[in-house]
Simulated assay, not measured.
Amino acid sequence: MAAEPNETWTLRNATAWVFTADENLTRPVLLVGDAGTGLADLAAGADHGSYSLLSELKARGRDLILLGLPADGSMTGDGGSVQNAVVRALAERHGDTRLTVGGTGQGALAARYALAGMEYQRIDHRAGLFFSHNGASPELEDEAELSRMGDRPRIPLFLRLADSGVDDGLDEEIADETITAEAGPAGPLLSKEYGSWLLERLPD
Score class of each variant (00 low, 15 high):
Asp171Val: 03
Leu53Glu: 10
Trp17Gln: 15
Asp151Val: 07
Pro70Thr: 09
Glu56Tyr: 01
Ala108Arg: 09
Ala89Met: 14
Asp22Trp: 05
Val82Pro: 15
Ile155Pro: 00
Asp47Gln: 14
Asp22Ser: 13
Glu56Val: 00
Asp47Pro: 07
Asp63His: 14
Arg93Ile: 05
Lys58Gly: 00
Leu170Phe: 05
Met118Asn: 08
Thr76Gln: 15
Ala43Gln: 08
Leu157Tyr: 08
Leu170Met: 06
Glu56Leu: 02
Leu64Glu: 04
Ala71Asn: 11
Ala2Cys: 12
Gly184Lys: 10
Arg148Ala: 06
Thr76Tyr: 02
Val29Cys: 02
Ala35His: 11
Leu64Ala: 04
Arg98Lys: 12
Thr37Trp: 10
Leu109Arg: 05
Gly128Lys: 04
Pro138Asp: 07
Ala89Trp: 06
Ala71Thr: 11
Trp17Gly: 08
Ser50Asp: 13
Gly45Ala: 07
Ala183Gln: 13
Ala2Gln: 09
Ala85Ile: 01
Ser74Glu: 14
Val101Gly: 03
Thr37Ala: 06
Ala71Tyr: 00
Gly61Met: 00
Ala114His: 11
Val86Asp: 04
Asp72Leu: 05
Gly61Ser: 12
Asp176Gly: 15
Glu193Val: 13
Ile155Thr: 10
Trp197Thr: 06
Asp151Cys: 11
Ala85Glu: 05
Pro156Ile: 12
Ala162Tyr: 07
Leu157Asp: 03
Ala127Cys: 04
Pro203Asn: 01
Gly187Met: 10
Leu90Cys: 01
Gly105Trp: 00
Arg88Thr: 14
Gly195Met: 03
Gly77Gln: 14
Ser50Trp: 14
Asp63Thr: 10
Gly61Trp: 03
Leu198Tyr: 09
Ala91Lys: 13
Pro156Asn: 09
Ile174Lys: 03
Ala162Thr: 11
Ala114Tyr: 08
Asp124Cys: 01
Asp142Ile: 09
Arg122Glu: 15
Pro5Gly: 05
Leu67Ser: 13
Val29Leu: 06
Leu159Cys: 08
Gly187Glu: 13
Ile123Lys: 06
Thr104Val: 04
Ala186Pro: 15
Trp197Ile: 08
Tyr113Ser: 12
Trp197Gln: 01
Val29Met: 02
